[in-house]
């Protein structure tokens, strides 16, 4: 695993299962990183059997969780305009929430990081 530029974001915690999957991509399937400085793995390189195994190497972003596994929660979000806009997710059975709405246009084109 190569560190993300600038190091880890504050508050992010390594997901060790994701790191393991990533490293297995190297050792088990021989996959290189697309860009070594970001740790983004090139799944397509010679992994003839990677897809068969359903073992998907994971990049740095997915090797981290926002607040760690213990704070994962189930939430609902509602749209009353056929999916055009969405309300802030409401966490079920808990008070913890934060504004997370982020509407962006999809970045089209080939995506190296999968």
């Amino acid at each position: 695993m190569n560190p993300a530029p600038g190091g880890e974001d504050p508050g992010q915690v390594i997901n060790y299962e994701a790191v393991l999957a990533h490293e297995l991509g190297h050792t088990g399937l021989g996959l290189p990183d697309v860009v070594t400085s970001t740790g983004i793995m090139n799944w397509a390189y010679p992994a003839e059997h990677g897809g068969c195994l359903h073992l998907y190497p994971i990049d740095v972003n997915s090797a981290q969780t926002q607040d760690g596994i213990t704070r994962r929660q189930v939430a609902t979000a509602v749209s009353t305009d056929d999916g055009v806009t969405w309300g802030t997710p409401s966490v079920l059975g808990g008070q913890w929430s934060q504004s997370v709405i982020s509407r962006r246009s999809w970045r089209s084109g080939p995506r190296a990081a999968t």
Binding site: R72, V74, A75, T76, A77, V78, T80, W86
Partner: peptide, 11 residues
């Protein structure tokens, strides 16, 4: 009844 789509997700 609410004329709304609702998504359930983990967060």
């Amino acid at each position: 009844s609410a004329a709304a789509f609702t998504a359930g997700l983990s967060w």
